[in-house]
């Protein structure tokens, strides 16, 4: 469903992503883990089209989307929970969702709204609240809900658990597990390696812009050496 080939992202002279390749099949969950500044966000943003790749190729559903505008990628079914949630601050909860659901038909949009409000009852209670007045956890929920109400086929999530208290982290991963059962394809960047490994089908470990290790979580966990050197658990 998604293929990334030799992706490079540069900011001026800084090379943030340096020849990253991986692929993701339908219904799979790939987790990218790695230290701060490893290039996870840059990789995900390049797939969404929020940053321009310097070189490399991104193919989604058989279409080369490397240079496609973000809104066209959204229409194709790529959706993102950006780092730091970034809800549309001066719009209400429901307006945030309406914006993301503009491109699907009314009945479908209504069904999806009901679905995300069922996933996040706390948002349902706050439909008319301005996004900027939500708590950090609620903002994160809104960001996930917003990414889900569109025509999503591939969900990209950048550190959804960052800065949340443990109970909320657990809640977020429950949601991720549930989405997985519903066969949504997901691409996760996570610093919470332990949790990420529990839900992932495949894991890529990034360091200094490159993938230094990849495999199934179980294989990585089986090696004490890998656990110490790369996963920090």
């Amino acid at each position: 469903m998604l293929e990334v080939e030799k992706l490079c992202v540069r900011y001026g002279k800084i090379t943030a992503v340096d020849g990253v390749s991986f692929s993701l099949n339908e219904g799979e969950l790939l987790a990218i883990v790695g230290a701060n500044g490893a290039g996870k966000t840059s990789t995900l943003n390049a797939i969404m089209g929020l940053v321009k790749p310097h070189s490399g190729r991104i193919v989604f559903d058989g279409v080369d989307i490397t240079h496609l505008e973000p809104w066209k990628r959204a229409h194709m079914g790529i959706s993102i929970v950006p780092e730091g949630a970034r809800p549309f601050a001066d719009m209400t909860v429901i307006e945030n969702l309406e914006v993301a659901a503009m491109n699907i038909d009314k009945a479908e949009a209504k069904r999806k709204m009901e679905w995300v409000f069922e996933l996040f009852p706390r948002l349902a209670e706050r439909k008319k609240q301005l996004a900027k007045t939500l708590s950090g956890g609620e903002k994160q929920m809104l960001a996930i809900a917003r990414a889900l109400v569109g025509p999503v086929k591939l969900l990209i999530m950048d550190e959804v658990s960052l800065g949340l208290m443990p109970r909320l982290v657990t809640e977020m991963f429950k949601i991720i597990e549930r989405l997985k059962r519903e066969k949504l394809t997901m691409l996760l960047a996570e610093q919470n390696t332990k949790k990420a490994l529990q839900v992932a089908d495949k894991v890529c470990v990034m360091q200094n812009g490159s993938i230094v290790l990849e495999g199934r979580p179980q294989d990585l966990l089986d090696s004490e050496e890998i656990k110490k050197a790369y996963l920090g658990i």
Binding site: M48, W71, A74, S79, P82, F88, A89, D90, M91, M102
Partner: peptide, 18 residues
């Protein structure tokens, strides 16, 4: 609503189909 979303976060608005 698209205009308001753009005004809030132009960089991100595109990611939601605008």
């Amino acid at each position: 609503k698209s205009l308001r979303a753009c005004s809030n976060d132009l960089g991100l608005a595109g990611a939601f189909g605008i």
